[in-house]
Amino acid sequence: MTLGEISIVLLSAFGVFFMLVSAIGIVRLPDVFSRMHAGGKASTVGISAMLLAAGFYFFDEFLFYRMLLLIALLFATLPIATSAMSRAAYLTGPIKRKHLNHDDMANDISRKQPTG
């Protein structure tokens, strides 16, 4: 194996490790918000590392820039998805209150009051 191949394998292994962490995290952690921490952050780093490895592997300039653009797209969209999910979970889901030690959002006046 050449040095380039070793670095590709290391970068992919870094990504696979974080994907495994996010999968174990959404099963092990106790409530929906902590699961979002695992599913949102660890998987962003994991995918980015794997796509970067794929960009290096094919040794093609335009493919590499395309992978960089895809990573930028993921960095723009995954936090928004996480925020949307956590807001939906807070507003409607019967979340486990005993895990929240401090809740300022209870006195938010802008949100829609649930009806029915």
Partner: peptide, 14 residues
């Protein structure tokens, strides 16, 4: 389940 779905799509990309 939505959190699980989001993580599954991430896995699909990887």
């Amino acid at each position: 389940r939505t959190v699980a779905f989001d993580t599954i799509t991430s896995h699909a990309i990887g």
